[in-house]
């Protein structure tokens, strides 16, 4: 073997660096291409569409922010936006309280590994893997006022006055859907919380127990602060999910957010504005795209703020 000069070594190092960069590019390019085609391109075209007038699917004149002005400030249009927004807020808050609250309780209970906890873990998670459309349809049948399972059970239990047309009343339609959503999804935050609790070293909990903390104090003072990263993830995912909520309200009460727009959501409003609904409206791509852009900007901004705020209280587990 002949001796290598300094230049040889440097060349070899450069070649190694190049090989590594090529390999990185090889790995990164396909996902970046996919992201570009399926995320940035549609996002860009939505922005582009939103500044034109549309005749069905034919692009008309450039109208600047006119579509945004219409959906935001024309009372007959903006009232739908604000009503849907209000409903999405209700969904977010309720899901946080009902679904994630329940998930937290379940996770804390499961973390203590009661008899048969593995079975319960599977049972709670099972609905998560089912299709949302199927679940929406199935619960729509359960909640049918005439022959639905829920009202039949209530009547059998002598609670005739409780046998309401759950999906037909403005007061009960949205709460019913939120509960259905909770039934569908509760296993997911439960599992995430459970994993977070399992990640907390047992010593902390034993130390707190020796310090005289009750189970409640342990949950509040030790487990809860230490599962902050999981809470961040769940809050942000819940927020995004709540403001993109579509399948359950669509399947259960249709595109118009029946009854009386009490279950209208931004997603439904966007869909029927952009694509129209057979029974009531025709498509308006301009206004629909403007809505899509607004919804995206809102979700993006608030998710970012949530992430920032919540990450600040996260603790690295030593």
């Amino acid at each position: 073997m002949t001796a290598m000069t300094d230049a040889d070594f440097r060349r070899a190092i450069r070649a190694r660096t190049l090989r590594r960069n090529l390999w990185l590019a090889f790995l990164l390019l396909p996902p970046m291409a996919v992201m570009f085609i399926f995320i940035f391109l549609p996002m860009g075209s939505a922005v582009l569409y939103s500044v034109y007038e549309w005749d069905g699917l034919v692009r008309g004149d450039f109208v600047g922010l006119e579509n945004f002005r219409e959906v935001l400030f024309e009372p007959q249009k903006s009232k739908f936006l604000f009503n849907a927004f209000k409903n999405n807020v209700i969904v977010f808050v309720s899901v946080m309280v009902v679904q994630n609250g329940l998930a937290l309780v379940l996770a804390m209970l499961l973390a203590r590994e009661p008899k048969g906890y593995r079975f319960y873990q599977v049972v709670f998670f099972l609905p998560v893997i089912l299709s949302t459309v199927i679940i929406g349809f199935q619960w729509k049948l359960f909640l049918n006022p005439v022959f639905g399972l829920v009202n039949n059970l209530l009547r059998a239990a002598g609670l005739d006055s409780w046998a309401l047309p759950w999906l037909g009343l403005p007061e009960t339609a949205l709460p019913s859907m939120i509960l259905v959503n909770a039934w569908h999804w509760v296993g997911f935050p439960t599992l995430v919380f459970l994993a977070a609790i399992h990640r907390i070293p047992k010593d902390y909990i034993e130390a707190a127990r020796l310090d005289g903390a009750s189970e409640w104090r342990i949950a509040r003072d030790i487990i809860w602060p230490l599962m902050a990263p999981a809470v961040t993830i769940i809050v942000v995912l819940t927020f995004i999910g709540a403001f993109n909520w579509f399948e359950i309200p669509y399947v259960m009460n249709g595109l118009e957010g029946a009854p009386g727009y009490s279950t209208d959501m931004l997603g439904l409003l966007f869909y029927r504005t952009a694509f129209g609904s057979i029974s009531a409206t025709d498509s308006d791509f301009g206004a629909g795209s403007a809505l899509a852009v607004l919804i995206f900007l809102f979700i993006f901004t608030v998710s970012l703020i949530f992430t920032r705020l919540l990450t600040a209280r996260e603790i690295e587990l030593a």
Binding site: N144, P145, V146, W166, G168
Partner: peptide, 16 residues
């Protein structure tokens, strides 16, 4: 209309 008519959908009406 049927009891709970507020929740009676198209399919149920036809079935009734």
């Amino acid at each position: 209309m049927p009891d709970g008519y507020q929740g009676v959908d198209y399919a149920t009406m036809k079935q009734l």
